[in-house]
Design a protein around this nucleic acid. Sequence first.
RNA 1: GCGGGUGUAGCUCAGUUGGUUAGAGCGCGGGUUUGUGGUACCUGAGGUCGCCGGUUCGAAGCCGGUCACUCGCCCCA
Length: 417
Amino acid sequence: MMEKLRTVRGVHDLLPDALHKHKKVIKAGLNVSSKYCYSEIEIPIFEFSEVFKKPLGNSSDIVTKENYIFKDRSDDELMLRPEGTSGVVRAFLNAGLVQDIPQRFSYFGPMFRYERPQKGRLRQFKQFGVECIGISNSMADIEVISLGYEFLNKLNIIDKISLKINSLGDADSRLNYTKALIDYLNDYKSQLSKDSLKRLSENPLRILDSKNSVDQKILINAPNVLDYLNERSKERFENVCEGLDILKIKYEIDKSLVRGLDYYCHTAFEFITDELGSQGTVLAGGRYDGLSKMLGGVEVAGVGWAAGVERLALMVQGEYINSPDIVLMAQTEVYNHLLLPIMNKLINEGFRVEIIYTGNISKKFKRANKINASFVVLLGEEEVAKKVIKLRNMMLGSEQLIDLNQGIKVIRKTLQN
RNA sequence: GCGGGUGUAGCUCAGUUGGUUAGAGCGCGGGUUUGUGGUACCUGAGGUCGCCGGUUCGAAGCCGGUCACUCGCCCCA
């Protein structure tokens, strides 16, 4: 392979087969979310970097080391979007929709993160997501999780996926808990992993999902987030769980589930599979009531999630088939141009048509067979003279000389069965 | 960002202890039976053996570096 002719690391071409699966995932998402009355929106692929920096938190990996930040010709600092929520909320604020809540949005498109590529982890990847903005009631959390569940269900993969859920509580609860956690962990400072030690001062909650075995041992007796929820937060979380029970959606409360991004509060959840190696999270989200304010807007409640399109596509079955209903061929090249008006007529009748221009008759039939054509229309000396076509049914191997209009009827009738 | 594995034609792989013009199957192109296909036959194209450098009379095979993919960590979707 020519070394210079390649895509950049972690960025892949999508050939028909893979693209087909991606579309299948996105279609299912749009389909289900539109039934929940979520409206599709599209927002820019890049924004002023502040749009992401503020809400995601300056200590988050996404902002510190995984960003694609660059300056354009007018010296504005821009960032390729690493996720969708911040942009959606920004768009919501810009459009003045605070005056018209609730708003329910769905979106999909490429996101960018400078990470080390792996299976199911790319530098340019697609997310499909939904956001329910303007409802602080816990019902919205349930609605959104239910939507995610139905989405995965439509993709026929829900039985390979489990749901984990947790609550971080409101700002008060979060603060109290963080204090307690720091107090506890301070006694183990000498044993904590390097990463965790760093987080102790920057973002203590993130220590909870450390996979370091020593950290995990220390964490066994650490204070539990759920014990530090104040009445309001606790009741809220119970409501969410109850709602899931009523929907018969199975879940597991995971006290170590902490979303990595600063803007989350209250409900956090993840749909996880063990089929994708270490990239098991397939759909994740939570509540982000503080986000709007971080962006400089008024306080607006919100919940949502995002799903990894290529991760889901890896789990989805189905090959891409695009075989023609009818293949057109001429006995010799001189008749090739006579095939074009026939093609136009046939595609206007709604058929999928391909013309085979080269090769001898035998080769042409081989090709027609290979691409799985249902019918062949053959034009030769005799047909042209008699102003008919030869129509061959490739499934049966039968053929007849027939007027084109009559032939169309035959084809239609056959394909309907 | 850290650690392990892999890298030969479009695909799946072979390539003996380093030795002349690097192979197979499948796939692809053209053709054979003078208007017909899942079979057959002939024939062709396609590889600077990921890339760069080193050792050697000589390297696809050894050494170093680099890139990409992959697995685990990290992070997340």
